[in-house]
């Protein structure tokens, strides 16, 4: 293995470990704000969550036993010199982190039930490659738990229902999930594109810090409205009732076919674990804990 390959494996494994054990500050702040406005059982849940976050950070242990499926999003320059090294370093880093952190071995063969034990397998870890002009690379890690992934949904809406139809479908879906995805959740909504793209956009929307608004005014307003509507439901933390069902809703969109209105709803649990790395063209790697 070349020096750069080794460095990539080690740094990526370190970032996976950080993502599993240290919750990003934007999520902690959002949880603290939620705790301050809640009372009763809802407040008990948020206090337990925040205590858990502290224990995990201090003891360098995973925040949640479901350390998720390691998922990668790589924005790489078309002239980025380490693409080949990165390609092989990603699964290697997952194996290393699974042993070292440790992460729960979460990859199961869908037909035989066999678990390789190292969080890799066919098509896993999955990487979304996003080429951009330039010579550096940016890597986003999103280890996503199974409970919240089970609450993701694709709705192929009738275009005539318009944006009201989108609002209704998002609110009804998130509310129907109740306590299952471990609320307060962060919801990524992808509108348009196509069946697969709408869900992918929903996932990409989760890479933004919690509560950071979409740069376009209409989209930002929709995010705010969806948050308010969902939180008016009363589902609350862990589905035990309360004011905070979502910490944030992030929306992304793509142009759609005139006959289709795809809506991808991606639900992320309160343990919105993320890590971010930047690789310079000279081979420097910086982990930036969001």
């Amino acid at each position: 293995m070349s020096k750069m390959s080794e460095k990539l494996v080690e740094t990526l494994a370190e970032a996976l470990g950080q993502a599993a054990t240290v919750l990003p500050n934007d999520v902690i702040s959002a949880l603290e704000r939620a705790r301050d406005r809640e009372e009763g059982p809802a407040r008990v849940q948020l206090e337990a969550i925040l205590r858990n976050v502290e224990i995990a950070k201090a003891g360098q242990v995973p925040i949640c036993q479901d350390t998720g499926t390691p998922t990668f999003f790589v924005r790489f320059g078309t002239k980025f010199p380490y693409l080949e090294e990165l390609l092989s370093a990603i699964p290697e880093a997952v194996r290393l982190a699974t042993r070292k952190v440790p992460l729960r071995p979460n990859t199961v063969h869908p037909l035989t039930g066999e678990n390789p034990g190292d969080n890799t397998g066919r098509h896993i870890p999955h990487v979304t490659w996003l080429p951009v002009p330039g010579d550096g690379a940016e890597i986003f890690l999103l280890p996503k738990g199974g409970g919240s992934e089970n609450c993701c949904a694709l709705k192929m809406l009738t275009p005539g229902l318009g944006i009201k139809g989108v609002k209704k479908a998002v609110v009804e879906h998130v509310v129907a999930c109740g306590g299952k995805p471990c609320p307060p959740t962060v919801v990524g909504v992808g509108i348009g594109g196509g069946a697969d793209l709408s869900l992918k956009l929903g996932k990409l929307a989760l890479l933004r810090p919690v509560g950071e608004r979409h740069p376009e005014r209409e989209v930002a307003a929709l995010e705010e409205e969806l948050e308010e509507l969902i939180n008016a439901s009363g589902v609350g933390p862990m589905g035990l009732g309360g004011k905070t069902t979502v910490l944030a809703v992030h929306v992304e969109y793509a142009h759609r076919h005139p006959a289709s209105l795809p809506l991808g709803i991606v639900v992320q649990c309160w343990a919105d674990r993320r890590a971010h790395l930047r690789i310079s063209p000279s081979g420097e790697i910086v982990i930036r804990n969001p």
Partner: peptide, 9 residues
């Protein structure tokens, strides 16, 4: 009900 995700606690 135990707080979901509170694995360290």
């Amino acid at each position: 009900h135990f707080t979901g995700g509170a694995g360290a606690l």
